[in-house]
């Protein structure tokens, strides 16, 4: 009897006055869903920019503080096309790039070693914690005294600050390697080097990527601070300099450039992470 009830509900019922199967309607609905997703993702951002533009042109906001977006974009395009901003972009990318590369070159190998050697980690941990908790900007004057006001001290302060995230993430990545996998590899006769290359290093890669992203963000943050304090070139300098000269359009152009660089760096690292860490993504 129970099955009968089930059968009745499954049997298609003729609907003489029902609408025809909505074939094109399905496409339409998919399109609407896609645009709804886009709207929820970028709607607020577009709204914010729209309000800015309208409020500035209508005079609700002081246009000398918040110039309309079209003027900022024009200034940005002029600066790039004339090459005036390109110099600043180049020098900023060079400073942050060298410092970031150095922090990775030091942090990853050091972290891999420290994660594997508890003695080394025990010995270095207190001093690392002290250095990490001391703001890099507080040490910037010290670096300037030691290294001069030139490029070296700027690169060094950025390197200093971005070293710790990548170093600590790498140590963490090595320490959380599954001991059962290590035992499995050892039982097949793996020596120290094989164990490192075939188990420890690949297992630490996802954590290293997290460290790379944190260090990248830190490098850009410190870049601006260092350029605001003691530079005569670079995007950080331009932000500060434009503000002194009431060139708020140029100021915002430099700010937007910095935001774009940050977004691009993050997008590149996310793409690399997706490529190398597919196995560790949540299902």
């Amino acid at each position: 009897m129970a099955f009968q009830g089930l059968e009745i509900s499954v049997t298609p019922v003729a609907r003489p006055d029902g609408p025809p199967p909505p074939l094109s309607g399905a496409n339409l609905r998919r399109g609407l869903e896609a645009s709804a997703r886009l709207a929820t993702r970028y709607g607020l951002l577009l709204g914010f920019l729209g309000v800015w533009q309208v409020a500035s042109t209508a005079g609700w906001l002081n246009p000398s503080v918040f110039p309309p977006l079209d003027r900022i974009v024009t200034t940005l395009a002029e600066g790039i096309l004339s090459g005036a901003l390109l110099d600043d972009i180049a020098i900023s990318l060079q400073r942050a790039g060298i410092a970031f590369a150095a922090s990775v070159a030091v942090g990853v190998p050091l972290g891999l070693a420290m994660g594997q050697m508890p003695v080394v980690e025990r010995a270095l941990d207190p001093i690392l914690q002290l250095f990490r908790q001391t703001s890099a900007l507080a040490l910037y004057p010290v670096f300037i005294l030691l290294l001069g006001l030139g490029e070296t001290s700027k690169v060094f302060v950025i390197f200093w600050a971005s070293l710790f995230p990548i170093l600590l993430a790498t140590i963490g990545g090595v320490k959380q390697v599954d001991g059962k996998l290590l035992e499995m590899a050892r039982s097949f006769g793996a020596g120290r080097l094989t164990l490192f290359g075939r188990v420890i290093l690949p297992a630490a890669v996802p954590a290293i990527f997290v460290g790379l992203r944190l260090s990248g963000t830190t490098a850009l943050l410190l870049l601006i601070a260092a350029e605001m304090i003691g530079a005569n070139k670079g995007l950080g300098f331009q932000v500060m300099n434009a503000q002194f000269n009431f060139r708020t359009d140029l100021m915002f152009a430099a700010i937007f450039l910095l935001a774009f660089i940050g977004l691009a760096l993050n997008a590149a690292l996310v793409a690399a992470q997706a490529r190398f860490c597919r196995w560790s993504e949540p299902r």
Partner: peptide, 9 residues
Amino acid sequence: YQEPRLLPW
């Protein structure tokens, strides 16, 4: 082993 202990990557 009781667990497969495969290298996940």
